[in-house]
């Protein structure tokens, strides 16, 4: 897809992926329509890179992740992981493949079973994937705990005894223990204090180097994504509107939505003057999509063409794609 990246192997390839949720309503609970949570998304993740996925709440980031992992069924499209079509795998093959990709969840308070000890929680993937020897499990558990900076003495304690940051470390250790190729981070720091956020981000960075991991990093906070990602992918209403390398995106955002997002990132300097792009109106309903470009209802640059036709993702620079008719003549992002 991206000729600038030849030589790097794609690890995960999704093409024309769709996830629709049926909506029932009315007196007889009849089918009223579908929520287009993920609508025709194609995306490639290369080995060893970190892909950031940003967008506002409800744009389909998490649903996309769940569809890719086949936790939520897809309505159409294909997902190739390491050359294998995930969506057509049999149950047993899928279970086997699950050790290659793991998730870190957003809320460290609900993602750990309160009735299991920390050691049990971290070792569970091993148990599920057939590591029968208890001594071997214990050894690898302690190794994983050391990797994420948890003391050995935490092994027999329960999750409620820990703070959010420590719980997130437990989550990371659990995701790491099978040495997966890909880790999906579903807003792993957004439930944490700012001071803890940076610790966790640095931990993820170190682990990536140590184990050669590939991340898909989902977040609504651009500065968090920027810190970790090689490439960033911006979603709006179930579609990708722009993909570019991190530097390129921050320097030359082409899509009006990306520009608006970037201008909303807080800058820790009260004296600096910024030109804010303020969006008007509400996000359109994913059940009842507007005709034409799905962003035109809020876009400051919308024209008649945008109201009629829907723009496709188009290459506008090396490795830079945008879904806007006018992105080619963009005035160079924010200067």
């Amino acid at each position: 897809m991206e000729n600038t990246r030849t030589g790097r192997l794609p690890l995960l390839e999704a093409s024309h992926l769709k996830t629709y949720f049926p909506v029932y309503g009315g007196m007889f609970s009849t089918l009223q329509g579908y929520v287009h949570a993920v609508d025709d998304v194609s995306l490639t993740v290369y080995q060893g890179e970190t892909l950031g996925l940003v967008g506002e709440s409800g744009c389909g980031k998490s649903t996309l992740m769940q569809t890719v992992m086949r936790i939520t069924p897809a309505a159409g499209g294909q997902v190739f992981f390491d050359g294998r079509d995930i969506l057509s795998l049999k149950r047993r093959e899928l279970r086997n493949l699950r050790k290659e990709f793991q998730i870190i969840y957003q809320d460290p308070f609900s993602s750990l079973n309160p009735r299991m000890q920390v050691g049990e929680i971290i070792a569970e993937p091993l148990l599920v994937h057939g590591v029968r020897d208890p001594a071997e499990r214990k050894k690898r558990t302690l190794q994983a705990m050391a990797d994420v900076g948890l003391e050995e003495s935490f092994h027999d304690r329960y999750p409620h005894e820990f703070s959010g940051g420590q719980r997130q470390r437990i989550s990371i250790a659990r995701a790491l223990i099978l040495r997966p190729k890909l880790i999906l981070c579903d807003e792993p720091v957004s439930a944490l204090d700012v001071s803890i956020q940076s610790q966790i981000l640095n931990l993820l960075k170190d682990l990536r180097r140590q184990y050669g991991l590939t991340y898909i990093f989902v977040s609504h906070a651009l500065n968090v994504v920027r810190y970790l990602s090689d490439r960033i992918c911006v979603m709006y209403l179930g579609r990708i509107v722009e993909i570019a390398e991190t530097k390129e995106l921050f320097a030359r955002a082409a899509h009006p939505y990306t520009q608006a997002l970037l201008s909303a990132v807080p800058v820790p300097d009260p004296t600096r003057k910024r030109s804010r792009v303020l969006l008007q109106g509400d996000i359109a309903s994913p059940k009842d999509l507007p005709q034409g470009c799905r962003f035109h209802t809020r876009c400051p640059k919308a024209t008649d063409r945008c109201r009629r036709e829907e723009p496709e993702l188009a290459e506008i620079g090396p490795g830079h794609q945008s879904a806007c008719f006018y992105s080619g003549q963009a005035e160079g992002g924010l200067s």
């Binding site: 699950r98 969840y105 993937p125 599920v128």
Partner: peptide, 13 residues
């Protein structure tokens, strides 16, 4: 709850 979903995602039967 997320811990149940995560168990499924990790491959638990």
């Amino acid at each position: 709850k997320e811990f149940v979903k995560s168990a499924g995602a990790m491959g638990c039967g």
